[in-house]
Each structure stands twice: as C-alpha cells, then as structure tokens.
C-alpha cells in the first residue's frame, strides 16, 4: 500500500468539509476521485499534500505516518502535486518553473529536463517564455512536467482537464497513461468522470465529504447511478461551468 487514508476529517472553520473519508492507493495504480463541485475532492488532495490540516484521521504514505508532517517535507518523501488551477509561477520562465519542480534536489540533471520536454514538446519550444503567458493547455502540461521533476512515487493531479478543449484533454490523458506505464502511481481528481474512469484502475465516488461508492473504474463506468449522475443525463463535462 503506497497511500492509506483512514477516517479523515477536515474542517473549514466550523464547516466539516471531509466527514470521515478512507481510501487506499496501491503502487502502480491510477486511482480517481470523482464527484461534483463541493464534494471534497480538492480538499482531500490538499490534505494529502499538507496544505490543509486534518482535524481527525490518519494519512500513511509509503509506510510512514505523515498526518502531522509539514507540507514541504512530504515532497521529499515522494509525494508531488500538480495543483488545482495549475499553480504556474507567472513571473518565471517555463525552464525556471521546471527547475522549481526539482527544488528539493538542487539543480536538476539535464536528463530530467529532457524527459519533460520529450513528454511535452510544446514546453521545449517555449522554454524561455514566462509561465503566465502560456495557454491553459500548455500550463497544464507544465504543471504535470514540473511535478515529475521531483521524481514522485505518487503523483497527485487536481482536475487536469479543467477548462481545456476535448482534444487537449485526450492528449493529456494519453500522457498520464505513459507516465503511469513508466512506474509512477497516480491519484487523480476529476469532474470529467468518463475520461477519468476510462484511464483509471480504480475509483472512488465522493459526495459531500464522504465516499459513497468505490470499486474498479470499469465497473463504476457502467454503474447506473454513476451514469445518471455523472456521465449520461448530465451535460457533457466539457460544457459544465467549472468553478471548483
């Protein structure tokens, strides 16, 4: 077990955002959290990477209890997140953003930069450009490329498809598959449930801070309740107004 979360509770002030959530991620898997706005997906990821403090429960990563560990120390253990809204440093170039990804190791070896540029050739073209001037798709590629610079054991991705054209989403999901094939475990948060479930091994469905359903991604894809609420009757994911 690479990541094991047990009975996690997170509060924003008096409001309970996560109400006793448990989940596991095995080495080599792609696991997805799906659910609508406000279900607690982003809060869960932020708590795993240490930006939010849980009020109860435990997080064990790679055999070590990290519940109380400072966020920047978790990166050293191999936990790396491409945050919601991508979090590109706007005043740094593409190259500097990538170098920030390897911050914990000092100067990144050229091989790491080459790997990022071969996964995302667009970034190589724009290496001297300021991060703030990239398109949404390019920023997402940069966010993923940057997270990989730390050589994570577990890559956390928050809504990589957010605000992107369907063609770019397909591209990015194909690259996620490639990253996973080369040995990186992925925990993904997505509103675009159909793409995410097709990519993943397993999935958890979140509603108002709780896991309401979990299982093999393939099974959830054909589960009537999931189809009605998140895949079928609802408008296409790309057309949803996304503010989470």
């Amino acid at each position: 077990m690479l990541l094991e979360i047990a009975d996690l509770q997170v509060h924003y002030g008096k409001i309970e955002a996560i109400k006793g959530l448990s989940l596991q991620v095995d080495e080599g898997e792609i696991v997805t959290l799906i659910g609508s706005n406000g279900a607690g997906k982003t809060t869960t990821l932020k708590t795993i990477s240490g930006l939010r403090r849980p009020t109860a429960g435990s997080i064990v990563f790679d055999g070590q209890d990290i519940t109380k560990l400072a966020g920047h120390r978790r990166v050293q253990l191999g936990l790396c997140q491409a945050p919601e809204g991508r979090g590109i440093f706007p005043g740094m170039t593409v190259l500097e953003n990538l170098e920030m990804g390897a911050y914990i190791r000092g100067k990144p070896p050229a091989a790491d930069l080459d790997r990022a540029f071969s996964l995302f050739p667009r970034l190589a073209e724009r290496r001297r450009q300021q991060g703030g001037t990239l398109s949404g798709g390019e920023q997402q590629m940069l966010a993923i490329g940057r997270a990989l610079m730390a050589h994570p054991k577990l890559l956390l991705l928050d809504e990589p498809s957010m605000g992107l054209a369907p063609l770019i989403v397909t591209q990015i999901f194909a690259i996620l598959r490639e990253i996973n094939n080369s040995g990186t475990t992925i925990l993904l948060v997505e509103q675009n449930a159909s793409s995410a479930l097709q990519l993943s091994d397993r999935a958890y469905l979140l509603e108002t801070g709780r896991v309401v359903m979990s299982g093999a991604a393939h099974d959830l894809l054909y589960e009537p309740a999931v189809r009605d609420a998140y895949l079928g009757a609802a408008p296409q994911p790309e057309e949803r107004t996304d503010t989470s």
Binding site: L51, G87, M92, A150
Partner: peptide
C-alpha cells in the same frame, strides 16, 4: 528562486518542497 516562488504563489511553493 525559493524566495520568488513564495512571493508568486506560496501554496504551490510548498508543493515544490519549499520551506
């Protein structure tokens, strides 16, 4: 670079391992 990252986006800086 850590100083600049913190100035531009402190949360993301933490995710990069910046103390």
């Amino acid at each position: 670079r850590g100083v600049r990252a913190t100035a531009q986006d402190p949360d993301t800086a933490v995710l990069m391992g910046v103390n």
